[in-house]
Amino acid sequence: MKTGMLLDPTKEIPSRLSEQIKNNFPDRELSDFNIRYYQCVEDVGYEYFTETVLPICGNHAAVQYLEPFISFMRLGESLILSKEGMAIYASEENDTCTECGPFWFVTAKPV
């Protein structure tokens, strides 16, 4: 598992991705969004665990002990469903893309 790759919307992004964002958010600029590329929905859960949960936990040893029992797949799915944004699957014709990934996850930047 690994964390998502944050794309810089001021640089070149795939045209299919740019078109879908503009279709869904016609009045917004690409710079208004955080765009992350993930290989799998499981990586979303893992990233949240390592970047959000671990740093605020007082007892790191206990939380790391619980790590093997966490379903990062389900955590990732719930995070995607709970955030305002959209998942755009990186599918081309005849590729191996599934509902689990790979995909771009587009969310509005915090104000």
Rank of each mutant, 00 (worst) to 15 (best):
F33C: 12
E92L: 10
E93W: 01
P14M: 04
R36G: 06
T107V: 11
R36M: 12
T107R: 04
N23R: 06
D27I: 11
Y48N: 08
V41M: 02
P110S: 01
N34Q: 11
L7C: 09
L54Q: 02
A62L: 13
V53H: 00
M1L: 09
N34T: 00
P110A: 01
R36W: 07
F105N: 09
G4M: 03
L75F: 03
Y89Q: 01
M1S: 10
M73C: 04
M1H: 07
T52R: 08
M86P: 13
D32L: 01
G45D: 06
T10P: 01
T10Q: 06
F69V: 01
P9T: 00
A62D: 06
S31E: 13
N59F: 02
V53Y: 06
S15N: 06
P9Q: 00
W104H: 15
G101A: 05
L81D: 08
R16I: 08
A90H: 13
T107D: 02
N34G: 03
I13A: 05
A62C: 03
L54V: 15
P68Y: 04
G4R: 00
C40A: 10
H60D: 12
T52D: 12
H60Y: 04
V106E: 05
V63R: 01
T98C: 09
N24A: 13
A61D: 15
I21G: 07
M5I: 13
A62Y: 02
Q20V: 10
T96V: 11
N34L: 10
W104L: 01
F49K: 05
Q39W: 13
N24T: 04
M73L: 13
T98W: 12
C97R: 09
A62N: 09
E93S: 09
C100N: 15
T3Q: 13
G4P: 06
V53R: 04
E77W: 08
A62K: 15
C100E: 15
S78Q: 15
F33Y: 07
Q20L: 15
Y46R: 13
E51V: 08
C57S: 14
I13P: 11
I88K: 06
L81A: 14
I21W: 11
S15C: 02
E19G: 07
A108F: 10
F25P: 11
F72D: 05
F105M: 14
Y46N: 11
N23F: 15
L66E: 10
D43I: 02
N23D: 15
L30C: 09
F33R: 12
R74A: 04
T98M: 08
D95E: 04
C97A: 08
A61P: 00
L17R: 01
D95S: 08
L30W: 09
L17I: 09
C57V: 07
L30Y: 06
K22Y: 14
V106I: 14
D43H: 11
Q39L: 10
T98N: 10
W104F: 15
G76W: 08
D27K: 07
M1G: 06
I21K: 05
